[in-house]
Nucleic acid binder design. Structure first.
Lengths: 237, 237
DNA sequence: TATTGGATTATGTCATACATAATGCGTTTC
DNA sequence: GAAACGCATTATGTATGACATAATCCAATA
């Protein structure tokens, strides 16, 4: 009778069900970490790894392929594989296909956008150049004065807020926006969330620009919060 | 004379240098999108794909392996591969190995943490239960009263802020924290950023809890900003 | 000196065979 | 008749050998 046949309170060690490729992948990642390898450094050739780890080239290749997929290495013919500083957001871009994400995650992402835009107010306020502000002014110039008349135009929305991301100067954030966008748009298009209405206290894009120009960091942050308030509705009541 | 031999101003179409696997991968992703497939749906078997796309099983497998790596599919023996709602952050966790990231990205991530923690103040304020607050009070109970005496203890820092992420109720954010953390710690340990000092206007953890309990959303958000101010130093001057 | 044209090397692709886990089904057993 | 067992089936997982292809080096040549 083997341990496997019994599932009661005997001290039975869990069987390692991971595949060979899984193990090799982890081994390689550990190697990258422990050896303190830097971008540009080379890792052993496939055939060398085959010998070192005692598995077939097939397995080595599949494991390397995974590292390649997550952007940790890069391989060229004759040269072999070299370490790379991964583009963190590149992956997200690939895997974030809205119709495949479940609703909970989509909602999380929607919230994430609100969180980020409020939080990055400080970056924006401290980094906006006069040229940036001029550009923002131009973007909002075509908007009607009265909030009541402002339709919710996703494209215009993206243009304005996209510029804000750019002003933040944080490239990871900028990439982030291009990732959040499809999900964001999807949330609206699919009717998960009702298109926002404006009440009288609403802060318009024009107001935001004004405050960015003449206010201070705190004012701008709080104004941004008010601007996004319409999106928060439905979450908190 | 082929187009390839000339590199001057002739109208020369760029050569497609992507590998077969690259193409198959993209083809499969397009398939997922266009066919409006949902999690749980099956995709064709490897051998079927081999016939459909006219490439060897090796290539098919490598492409599938990539989709598996980015969490879009899942494969089991005999059953084949099925679509999966990807865990977005799982990937980041793997590829974010601090010593491999370049400095610029590390700095971006450091900023990102600040952005997120300020921005999620609203989530925290609106979702904190009395039990949450009690727990926070317990965490900060051991801290000295005077800001001046507070040492910068990364572990304690993580404990407190980790609880805040949890209160936010946004699972993507919670995952995010476990990702930002190693990078965050690395930034300090490697001396890229000096360990913060507290000035007299500093808002302590204790202050934050008090405001979360008795203040309002705006006060809490601005307090959080002040609390993190020491980290912002060095960026803006 | 500059260019050309192999030789070399390591990854990329193909083909085939077998191992392994999951599933279903019929047979045995009580 | 129902549970348990064993066997065939199926699709992925692993191993192996062969060849294709791109990048690089180096020697021969003009």
């Amino acid at each position: 009778m083997t341990d496997k046949t019994k599932n009661n309170s005997l001290n039975i060690t869990a069987v390692d069900s991971s595949s060979l490729v899984d193990k090799v992948e982890q081994t390689l990642i550990d190697l990258l970490i422990s050896e303190k390898l830097n971008p540009g450094d080379q890792i052993p050739k496939e055939l060398e790894l085959t010998e070192m780890l005692g598995v077939s080239r097939t397995v080595i290749r599949e494991a390397l392929n995974r590292l390649k997929t997550i952007g940790l290495i890069e391989s060229t013919k004759r040269k072999g594989s070299t370490i790379k500083s991964p583009d963190l957001l590149f992956l997200l871009k690939k895997s974030l296909i809205p119709n495949i994400l479940d609703q909970a995650t989509l909602k999380d992402i929607f919230e994430l956008r609100l969180v980020i835009e409020i939080g990055m107010s400080d970056l924006i306020y401290n980094r906006a150049t006069p040229e940036d502000i001029a550009e923002l002014e131009q973007i909002v110039a075509t908007e009607p004065d009265s909030p009541k008349e402002v339709l919710f135009d996703v494209d215009h929305e993206i243009k304005f807020h996209g510029k804000l991301y750019q002003i933040s100067g944080n490239h990871t954030l900028i990439d982030f926006q291009t990732i959040l966008l499809p999900a964001f748009r999807y949330v609206y298009d699919s009717g998960m969330i009702e298109s926002p209405n404006h009440d009288s206290k609403w802060v318009s894009h024009q107001d935001l620009v004004k405050i960015l120009k003449d206010g201070n960091a705190n004012k701008f942050r709080n104004a941004m919060r008010k601007h996004l308030d319409r999106h928060f509705k439905g979450y908190f009541k």
